[in-house]
Structure formats: structure tokens, C-alpha cells
């Protein structure tokens, strides 16, 4: 009896179950794909518009495979920012993935190391959101892995095809169209989608004000200092709001 043989007792990890989980994942991701395609096209077209070659645009898409980080690099390349600024800003915008990674890790107990490393390459905001919403305790590890890749494979295909189409189209777009403006507009859209709590709004507002005040600071550091100030103020606002609501719900307690 080999270790690869399906567990017939529960039938949980059989090939048919895995296939079904993969298709479920692919089905779950279809609702977000129409939003991913224009994002990818913008990432490809603005890269070329900023003066990068089609191969550099595609290398970003294939190797980085993270829309926000790609757009950060495009915006900073276009603005002539320093190398350190590019690396640090891309790192900061990507730090949210540490949170996703930590959130998903316990859900994939039993997945192989190779699967986990591949998951690290394709992990996306969408995959995180769908997985945390859809996983339940009855799903086995193999099923979850299949579901995850069912989400991620269509995402990957749409992202790569979209950036390629955008990069090829981008050369045909005349500069008067100001395609570079699409980058901050994408960031604005993503920002507004994610603002859920008052503390988040504090974080965004502080970051915006500091980044504008620091727009002429050396190495575009206003960007990073703004982002860090926003994170800190948002976090403090959350603690403040929480302690206030606690003292309100328990009058006289803890004073």
C-alpha cells in the first residue's frame, strides 16, 4: 500500500474530491475575474507608458505577480525615485501578505512544503478573502489545497494575459491620454474598497496628509514616512476607540 493511495475510509482526499474542490475554487473566483482583467491591463500598459520594455513589464508580472507592488514600481520608476525607495515601498505594500500568510497557514495543515511554496508565489488578496470566507472544518487539507489552486490558476492566467495585452496596447496609447494617471486611480479605488472602520480612515487620512507635506523630501521618503505615520495613528485610534467603547459599556468600571 503506497502513501499516495486515496484514503478510502473517509474518501476525503480522493482524486475526484480534489477535482471537485478545484472546480469549486475556480467557480468562486469567476466573480472577481472581471475586476482583475482591467487591473492587469493597466499594470501592463502603464509600465510601457512609463518607459519600460514589454519584457520588463512581463518580467514584473511573471516574477512578482502582485498588482499593487507592480504599480508601485511603475509609479516610482516614472517619478525617477531612488532604488532604496522602490525596494522599501514595495516591501511595505507587500507586508499585508505576511498577515494573509499567517491567517491561512493553520488552514493548510497537512499540505506539502512544495505546495506551500507554490502557494506563496500565487497568494493574492482575492485568494485570501475567498478562502477565509469559504473554508469549513469538514474540508481536508488536500481539498483545501485544490480549492486554493482552483482560485489561483485562473487568477494567474487572467493576470498574465491581461498585463501582456496591456503592455502591447500601451505602446499604441498616445502620451496625451495621460495613462500614468490610471496608476493613482487604481490605488484610490483599492483604498476606498478597503476602508471599513473609522480607524482605517484615520490611517488613510494621516498617511495622505504626511505624504503630501513630504512630497519634496529626499528619496521620496514622504511616501514611506506617510505610510508609517498612517499605520501608527490608525492603530492608536483603534485602541482609543476600543477603550472608549469599553468604558462606555461598563460605566464606573476600571476608573
Amino acid at each position: 500500500m503506497s502513501a499516495r493511495e486515496p484514503d478510502t475510509a473517509g474518501g476525503e482526499d480522493g482524486a475526484a474530491t480534489r477535482r471537485r474542490a478545484f472546480i469549486d475554487g475556480a467557480r468562486a473566483v469567476t466573480v472577481v475575474l472581471p475586476g482583475v482583467l482591467p487591473f492587469a491591463t493597466v499594470a501592463g500598459a502603464t509600465a510601457v507608458d512609463a518607459g519600460l520594455s514589454v519584457s520588463a513589464a512581463m518580467a514584473m508580472s511573471l516574477l512578482i505577480f502582485a498588482g499593487s507592488a507592480q504599480l508601485v514600481l511603475i509609479q516610482l520608476f516614472d517619478a525617477g525615485a531612488a532604488l532604496v525607495t522602490m525596494l522599501l515601498t514595495a516591501l511595505v505594500i507587500n507586508l499585508r501578505f505576511a498577515m494573509y500568510s499567517a491567517g491561512l497557514a493553520p488552514l493548510f495543515h497537512g499540505a506539502t512544503l512544495r505546495q506551500r511554496l507554490l502557494m506563496g508565489y500565487v497568494l493574492s488578496d482575492q485568494a485570501f478573502a475567498i478562502c477565509t470566507a469559504r473554508f469549513d472544518a469538514r474540508m481536508g487539507a488536500a481539498q483545501r489545497v485544490a480549492f486554493f489552486f482552483g482560485i489561483s490558476l485562473p487568477m494567474w492566467i487572467v493576470w498574465e494575459c491581461g498585463t501582456l495585452a496591456g503592455a502591447l496596447l500601451g505602446r499604441a496609447v498616445p502620451p496625451e491620454w495621460s495613462l500614468d494617471f490610471a496608476v493613482p486611480l487604481m490605488f484610490l479605488g483599492l483604498l476606498l474598497l478597503g476602508l471599513r472602520s473609522p480607524a482605517q480612515r484615520v490611517a488613510a487620512l494621516v498617511a495622505a496628509v504626511v505624504a503630501v507635506l513630504g512630497r519634496d523630501w529626499a528619496y521620496n521618503s514622504g511616501l514611506l514616512i506617510g505610510a508609517l505615520a498612517g499605520v501608527l495613528c490608525g492603530w492608536l485610534a483603534q485602541r482609543l476607540l476600543r477603550s472608549r467603547s469599553r468604558s462606555r459599556s461598563q460605566p464606573g468600571a476600571g476608573r
Partner: peptide, 18 residues
């Protein structure tokens, strides 16, 4: 908790000056 504020803060810092 801190990481949860990164998307909002980083995106706002990128958008506003641009």
C-alpha cells in the same frame, strides 16, 4: 493589528501626492 493598517495607509500615501 499594525499590519492591518498597511493597505489603507500605504495606498493613501501613494495616491494623495500623485
Amino acid at each position: 493589528e499594525l499590519l492591518g493598517f498597511i493597505p489603507a495607509a500605504a495606498l493613501a500615501a501613494l495616491v494623495a501626492p500623485a
